[in-house]
Amino acid sequence: MEIKNYNELTSLEIDTLREIGSIGTGNAASALSVMLGRNVRITLPEVRIMGYNEAIEWIGGPEAITAGVMVRISGQMTGIMLAVQSLEFINLALRSMLSEEIHDYDELQDLERSALVEIGNIMISTFINALTGLADISVDLTVPSLSVDMQGAILTVPMAEYGGQSDYLMTIGGNFMCDNQVVPCRLLLSPDVRSLNFLLRKLGVLE
C-alpha cells in the first residue's frame, strides 16, 4: 500500500531503506578511502523518521556550526542529499588533499571550500549511483553547494522543502570511521514521499 507519510513505513520497508543506506554509504566510504589514501569504513547505517525539533536534537543541537554540502535530486526521484561535515572530518580531508589543517570554520578560504564541496560531491554521487543502480532508476543531480553555518538551519533545508507534505523528516544515512576512529560526517538522503513510494515499489517491497 502506498504510504502518505513517513511514519507509516513498515519495519520491512525501513529495513530495506537501511540496506540502501548501508550500500550507499559503503560505496561512499570506498570512494573516500581512495581519495584520502586511508582505511575508511562505515558505522551502522540508520533510517530515521523524526519530528522537526527531534531531528535538530539528534544532529547535535541547533547552533553548532558545521559545513554542509547539498545536492538536489530530480528525475525519477526527488530529494535532497546532504553531507554534514564536522571539523574533525574537514581536517582529515584537508590534511590529505592540501596538507593543512584549520582550527575554526572561519579559516575556510576558497581553496578549502572547493575541496570540501568536491569531497562531499563525490561521496553523495557515489551513494546515489549505488542507489540508482540497485533500484534501476535514473536521476539528475544539481551542482553541489556548500554552506558553513548553524547546523539547525542547514537541516531545515530538507524539512522546509517537504514541509508541505509531512511533519516529519526522514533521513537515510550513516557515519564514517577512519583508521578505526569515528570521524563525524553524516550522509543524509531525504526523499519526498512520492519518491519513497516509487523507490520501495522498484525494490519490490511495496505491496
Binding site: Y52, N53, P62, E63, Q151, G152, V157, A160, G163, D167
Partner: peptide
Amino acid sequence: VGIADMKMLQWDGELITFALGSC
C-alpha cells in the same frame, strides 16, 4: 520556541528561537 511553534510571555523574561535559516 521550536520549529513550527509559538510561545508567549508577559512582563519579563526572554523568548528565544534558534537557527532560523529560511524559516
